[in-house]
Amino acid sequence: MSAVAAAARTAAPESTGEPAVLLGVDVVETARLARAVERGGEAFARHVATEAERGLTSEAAAFSVKECLIKAVGGRAPGFGWHDFEAVGGAPAAWAGRLLDEAAAELAASTGVALDGGAAYALHGASRAAALERLRPPQDAAVTGAARWGSGGGLFVALAIVYVDRKEGARCPG
């Protein structure tokens, strides 16, 4: 078992036997990603990123991170849209941030790419429903995400987690 898997077991709040963290990774050649962004131009940017998140991440980061989030929730659910995931201000829950940092360090060590970019992510629509199905959070929990990314050595590397963020009095919106 990797250190990240072990940390996921110990970091998850009030384990119920169901997975508490979903993880996705995307490693792509920087040139290939740059060609896709350039070829798609403004239409690509609008398709992948919401208006609100365009200032928070680059188009390349938005695409790669959302690929990670898609993997984390189990694929593109019926009704999927790229705007199902939206970069938002703020930080992940402290325990999830520690887990993400540890996983990012392991991924950086194996790829040689420092994952120095990051953002928290809100989940919406079909992808949120898929995450809820996989995580099965208690009624007072919210499902959210966070990501780290970086580029170097011809690679763009991204890592994302989707997790149950249990907060006092919080409810999962329906």
Rank of each mutant, 00 (worst) to 15 (best):
L69G: 07
A72P: 03
A130D: 03
R46K: 11
L132E: 08
E106W: 09
G89V: 00
A8Y: 03
G125F: 02
A114D: 14
M1F: 14
G125V: 01
R166H: 11
M1A: 15
G75V: 01
E14I: 01
L33P: 03
A77D: 00
D84H: 07
E133W: 07
A72W: 00
V27D: 00
L115D: 02
V27Y: 00
G145Y: 01
K167H: 15
H124A: 08
A114R: 14
I161T: 15
D26G: 02
A49G: 07
A109I: 06
R166Q: 14
L99F: 03
A120V: 06
L22M: 06
L22C: 06
T50Y: 05
A11Q: 07
M1N: 14
V65N: 13
I70W: 10
V88T: 10
E53V: 05
L135T: 00
R136P: 02
Y163D: 13
A96Y: 01
S127W: 01
A104W: 02
E38P: 01
V25N: 03
R166L: 12
E102A: 15
V73W: 01
A146Y: 04
V28R: 13
A109N: 11
I161M: 15
G153C: 10
A8R: 07
A147V: 02
H83D: 07
E51A: 13
A49K: 06
T10G: 11
G81R: 12
A170W: 15
G169Y: 12
L132S: 02
V21Y: 09
R35A: 10
T57E: 12
W149F: 14
L56M: 10
G40I: 00
A94C: 04
G74D: 04
E38F: 09
G40Y: 01
K66W: 04
L159W: 06
A131W: 02
K66T: 00
I70L: 12
A146L: 06
A122F: 09
R32L: 13
A77P: 02
Q139E: 13
E67P: 11
L107Q: 12
W95V: 05
G154L: 09
P173I: 12
A43G: 13
E38R: 14
E86T: 11
G81A: 11
S58D: 06
L159V: 14
A146G: 15
A31N: 05
P138Q: 08
G97Y: 01
R9M: 12
A87V: 03
R76Q: 09
V65Q: 10
G150K: 07
G89R: 07
A7F: 10
G41K: 03
V65A: 11
K71R: 14
A87L: 02
G81L: 03
L155G: 10
A130I: 02
R136E: 13
G117M: 10
D101Y: 03
G90Q: 04
G169A: 15
H124I: 00
T57G: 06
